[in-house]
Write a protein that binds this DNA or RNA. Structure first.
Lengths: 246, 246
DNA sequence: AAGTTCATTTCATACAGTGAAATAGTATTG
DNA sequence: CAATACTATTTCACTGTATGAAATGAACTT
């Protein structure tokens, strides 16, 4: 499926670029010939995944219905909403669900607590696995080589303050036997958070839920005290998923 | 680009289905062999566009960053936001931007007025071109044959109350010389709206902006009185786009 | 106006995409 | 619990599609 992989790379590159791209730029960045790139863009455009104005290409409107479909129908997201709702109201903190995608994590659901973190709703935001409680817990049980990849990917993606070595990263990961991660001022200054992994059949978790709070509203002990609550929420979510046909 | 087109069809089918699909279902619905469908799904899965649990496939989380990228970076959407904001505050009504995608339209931006229409934020929702002011204005200047396609597509997509003939549709379209469309109780009962097309270089518009209001808050004359305001907003948006490098 | 860059089309070739068929794995049923 | 149906997956030989080099045409730059 060479052509399909290539098409996906073009599509990814258009997202990375954050601005309209010309054909030749895309061809160069993606390492493919002009005719090939052009043909790919034309097909993607037919399906609305790409828009064109004059000579520049960008992500097209068809991604919106796709995202909507995901948010409304994905069993994980649908099941998570009420669960997050409950933790948020029990703890008064903002509860978030992240899912791992490659070497990043994506925020897929959030329910605000009493004092919402008002850095605009970042649904769909790509965040590093190396920084923040919800990221770290996803790689807490990763092998040495995977950690290397994780660190390399974070640097390659240009994520903030991720100029880490594996050693540095490991020092921030939860110690053996601890099933939650904690972060303070990692991803954003003045923000504390704790996170636990959502268990799944495979060993490596690919989802995590987090409680996040501005420093003014919560302290480290207070957040950590909520971990059992979080843990239960994660388990409940996990069970809901096993139950459903998925 | 046969394989790419087919992949896009599989992807579209997963959205249409609104629930996880098995391999054999997808293969049948899309009219392709099992091995081919499987290979496509695997590649899409590698890129996070598709998720799999056990034997069922669904839209994957990668669509969220894509949608986010679109909403944050698309010149049209970005330029539209302040324009919608202004019309909304000037008129007190909810202002929306739609873009045409195939034989449907998609809501890509909305700014609520004083009395917001609380049928949840339908960003990314697919709506028919045959129903509602913002749909009709997009096909107001369409040829006879295109109208046939439009009607056929609306029926095929199973859109509500779209069991129209071309004749019926035409009777609801704006008359010659009128550059806005009006609708009452078409898409939703108790909702009035007016819409104008956003001019572009090609004759056929592909975007429209609408003012929408519950019957309790506005009357037909009141909405129609706001048309000049809307018209100016559409022109301003159009100019903003011509200006930018896009 | 000449030159440079970029988009697009054409075309011959190679190889990637294809489905039939065989195999393995899972449900379903009696 | 065995037998049967269905579904997923792998293998493989063939074909047709995806490919890039080169030629053409368009659009900027200087």
């Amino acid at each position: 499926m060479r052509s399909l992989s290539r098409a996906m790379e073009v599509f990814a590159e258009l997202q990375r670029a954050e601005r309209p791209q010309r054909l030749s730029d895309l061809a160069r960045t993606c390492g493919m010939s002009l005719p090939t790139t052009l043909r790919i863009l034309r097909v993607l455009q037919d399906f609305g995944m790409v828009s064109q104005t004059d000579k520049s290409y960008r992500i097209g409107p068809a991604v919106l219905p796709a995202a909507r479909s995901y948010l409304e129908n994905d069993p994980l997201v649908v099941a998570a909403r009420p669960v997050l709702q409950q933790v948020a109201s029990q703890t008064g903190q903002t509860a978030s669900l992240y899912t791992r995608l490659g070497f990043e994590r994506i925020l897929v659901a959030r329910v605000d607590g009493e004092s919402p973190l008002r850095y605009d709703l970042p649904l769909g935001k790509r965040l590093p696995l190396t920084v923040g409680a919800a990221g770290k817990i996803l790689v807490a049980s990763a092998s040495e080589e995977e950690l290397q990849q994780v660190v390399a990917a974070a640097i390659a993606a240009g994520h903030e303050s991720s100029a880490f070595t594996v050693k540095e990263l490991r020092s921030r990961l939860p110690e053996a036997g601890v099933d939650y991660a904690y972060s303070a001022d990692e991803r954003a200054t003045g923000v504390l958070s704790v996170a636990v992994a959502v268990p799944n059949r495979s060993g490596q978790p690919s989802e995590s839920i987090a409680l996040t709070s501005p420093v003014e509203t919560a302290t480290e002990p207070a957040l950590k005290a909520a971990v059992p609550e979080l843990r239960r929420a994660a388990n409940r979510l996990s069970e809901l998923l096993e139950g459903s046909v998925y």
